[in-house]
Computed example of a mutant assay.
Amino acid sequence: MKRIKLGLVTKLLIAIILGIIFGQLAFLPNFIIQIPVTISALFSSLLSFIIPLMIIGFVVVGIADLTQGAGKLLGITTLMAYSSTLIAGFIAYFIAVNVFPLFIDSGLSAEGIGEKSSLDPLFSIPIEPIMDVTSAIVFSFMIGICISWLRGQGKGDTMYNFFSEFSLIISKLLNSLIIPGLPIFIFGNFANLSYTGSVFSILSVFWKVFVIVIGLQLILVSLFFVIAGLYTKKNPLILIKNQIPGYITAIGTQSSAATIPVNLEVAKKNGVSAQIREFVIPLCATIHLLGSIVTVISCVTAVLLMYNMPVQFGMMAGFIAMLGIAMVAAPGAPGGAIMSALPFMTMVGIDPTGVLGNLLITLYLTQDSFGTAANVSGDNAIAVIMDKIYFKHILKKNN
């Protein structure tokens, strides 16, 4: 009998569905549900340990391969990511202030949105990362640019070979352990979310906001791919189709960093060169937050409207500009963006440690997976554009 081989997308969808069903089985003792939650937590710890190493392995070699124009490529990529994040934030604000008042009652309160506590793992193994994500990015930039400069001088082969082989080790680890383990990780996450019932209770109140947010994210990502397709003369529909595995993976993991290996394969399908995709994808997983800022701005505006608080453009413009910078340091993990944004909530009159701050965390986490999916999808649109910019403008000009 021929064995049916399931693709990654199919496995992820099955894991999501089974996780939701498993978490709803009320007759099961809690410790039974805690088993996949524990496995998921252990996997998450391992992933947190590997993420900085992944960034170093890919970004250092990616920059080092760019013996000419590395600084320009970094600057253009960063500018494009920040501009995309800002534009998405302002669009989200204008949609929110014009559409949300049609169905948000300013007398609504956060009371009654109670939920069961999430299940804790049966045990945990503390695995501290060698360095945090921001340090890994800075380290990779400095080392990669210096190796790139050395190679331009006819030197640097020893350092380049070391990081190249380190990159191969990371790739082997990802292909043999991380990617095969993603469905198990997702199953545990969704089982816990389903057990708490938080997603369902919150959506019963805010489902209209979420529908608009998700729709806006999809529209913005599609427009980004259309722009990328027009600029590079590639079919936008094929680019969007290729992104589906990355989008679904991000929904399940709620992590831009965890989606990097899948997103790299998507970029390869899109015809993006190895040196560009291995530089742009890990970098943008940290600095490009198109979907996250749409979620944050929409949720903040919704809460302000609910409590009849000011939503003036001047106030929100400063908040959006600051978020574009603050969220760059957000860890590529569930809830990272909202945690980085919390210290700046006082700019719009929200106490990050009060009731509204807690409500925003709950709202954001409910929709976090879709925002992350939009983030990583936009990363590949940037990669397609940067591939042409590098080979047509930066590299040719230097030659």
Rank of each mutant, 00 (worst) to 15 (best):
L289Y: 10
S256Q: 03
G271L: 09
L8W: 12
I219C: 09
Y364M: 11
G156W: 02
M347Q: 12
I56K: 01
K172M: 11
S83P: 08
E278Y: 14
L108R: 14
D368M: 07
I276W: 01
Y231L: 14
T253L: 07
N270T: 06
I178L: 09
N270L: 08
I212C: 09
S84H: 05
V272W: 00
A373W: 00
A81F: 04
F43P: 03
M315D: 05
I137E: 03
F187M: 05
I212H: 06
A110L: 12
S176L: 13
F279E: 04
G318A: 07
L305M: 14
I16Y: 00
C284A: 13
V213A: 15
G229D: 02
I361V: 15
L108T: 15
V294W: 01
P282K: 00
A191P: 07
I33T: 09
L359R: 03
K233T: 03
I17Y: 04
V296R: 00
H393P: 03
D120T: 15
L73R: 03
G144E: 04
A88L: 06
I338W: 00
N399S: 11
L79W: 05
V9M: 13
I394M: 07
D132I: 03
I4G: 07
S48F: 04
T10V: 13
L119H: 01
I39V: 15
T346C: 11
F224A: 14
G324C: 14
F391R: 09
N175K: 13
V226K: 09
L8K: 10
Y231Q: 08
L86P: 02
G357K: 08
N192R: 09
T372N: 14
I281V: 14
M142G: 10
K2G: 13
L304D: 06
V328S: 11
I219T: 14
V133G: 00
L150K: 07
Q254R: 06
L168V: 10
G378E: 00
K388Y: 08
S124I: 09
G57L: 02
S45V: 01
G107L: 10
W149K: 15
S167I: 04
I51Q: 00
E278A: 09
D379T: 01
F31I: 15
